[in-house]
């Protein structure tokens, strides 16, 4: 349905997006994962016709939208990272304005507004000014404004930034609903791994302006099929102990935070007895031991050497 081919964008010679190839099939939910500054928003801006690519193509059903941006605008709904709303207008007035500039009017517009409000669960607050809403409610109206013209493709650029867990769950549920029951194709960008894991069929991982990995969740996790993740909770941690751990056979990476340790080790290394022995030598009490199945977060760590929120 939608694909980008060797998509690149430079600002004053500095590459913001480099050689990005991605595709979205009809009805799919695709995640674009990456830390801040990875190039996700620039990629989205090019797909949504806000920026012209320096090179490469964006094709919608085989038609190059760089030359015919009108084609994609008709079927694209964009939820920007910022709250792109008029704070001094009510939720209803905002939606009416954005709906009308999609050339909708009369009953059709009214029906769309009520439908969008129903999806985001703010029908009863439609007459209130947006500035009186909580952060989460504003985010939901931000989504509603992109749904008015019933887009076939919905692009959401980090739609849950800075909101409470309840609103976040509501938004994730809304996106899932749109994808599963309304058949909307979703491109969801985030630096929250768990959101992408929860929502998306396929994931593109971006870092430093490039796509560094792509595939279904299972495909990405298979990158780490040769590794185990061990989580330890200790009574205390000292540097010598961590250094000793790193030098143990089979240990590939050790991360420490407070009194917790995360060890990525070669699959089947069976480190438990050695760990207990080492802890005892350093008079450290082992409070908790857990072997984990790798997550996308671990995949990202494996690929880039740092966490998503670094």
């Amino acid at each position: 349905m939608l694909e980008t081919i060797h998509l690149s964008k430079s600002f004053k010679g500095k590459k913001a997006v480099q050689d990005v190839n991605l595709y979205l099939d009809n009805g799919e939910s695709v995640g674009l994962l990456g830390p801040n500054g990875a190039g996700k928003s620039t990629t989205i801006s090019m797909i949504s016709t806000l920026l012209k690519p320096t090179s490469g193509e964006i094709k919608l059903n085989g038609i190059n939208t760089v030359n015919k941006p009108g084609e994609i605008r008709k079927i694209l709904g964009v939820v920007p990272q910022e709250l792109a709303l008029y704070q001094e207008l009510s939720a209803y007035e905002n939606l009416k304005f954005f709906g009308s500039i999609y050339k909708m009017k009369g009953k059709e517009l009214e029906k769309s507004i009520q439908h969008a409000l129903e999806i985001v669960g703010l029908k009863d607050r439609q007459k209130d000014l947006v500035k009186t809403f909580s952060g989460g409610m504003k985010r939901r109206i931000n989504i509603a404004a992109a749904l008015l013209h019933q887009p076939q493709i919905l692009i959401l650029d980090e739609p849950t930034v800075g909101i409470d867990p309840q609103s976040r769950n509501h938004i994730l549920e809304t996106v899932r609903l749109l994808n599963e029951t309304e058949g909307t194709t979703v491109l969801y960008t985030s630096h929250y791994m768990e959101e992408v894991e929860q929502l998306c069929d396929r994931v593109y991982i971006m870092d430093d302006s490039e796509v560094i990995a792509a595939g279904s969740k299972a495909e990405l996790l298979s990158i780490l099929s040769s590794e185990d993740t061990i989580k330890l909770e200790l009574s205390k941690i000292n540097e010598d102990f961590v250094e000793k751990l790193k030098s143990m056979e089979g240990v590939r990476k050790v991360e420490s935070a407070n009194s917790q340790l995360k060890i990525i080790a070669k699959k089947g290394s069976n480190l438990i007895s050695e760990l207990v022995h080492l802890a005892d030598r350093y008079q450290i009490q082992l409070l908790h031991y857990q072997t984990e199945t790798p997550s996308l977060e671990d995949v990202f760590l494996h690929l880039t050497g740092r966490t998503l929120r670094d």
């Binding site: 806000l50 920007p80 910022e82 709303l85 008029y86 704070q87 954005f98 500039i101």
Partner: peptide, 17 residues
């Protein structure tokens, strides 16, 4: 600043409006 202008641009309305 609030990116509302960008939201307007991604509609098919003429920017001159």
């Amino acid at each position: 600043r609030q990116k509302v202008f960008n939201r307007i641009l991604v509609t098919n309305s003429h920017p001159m409006l």
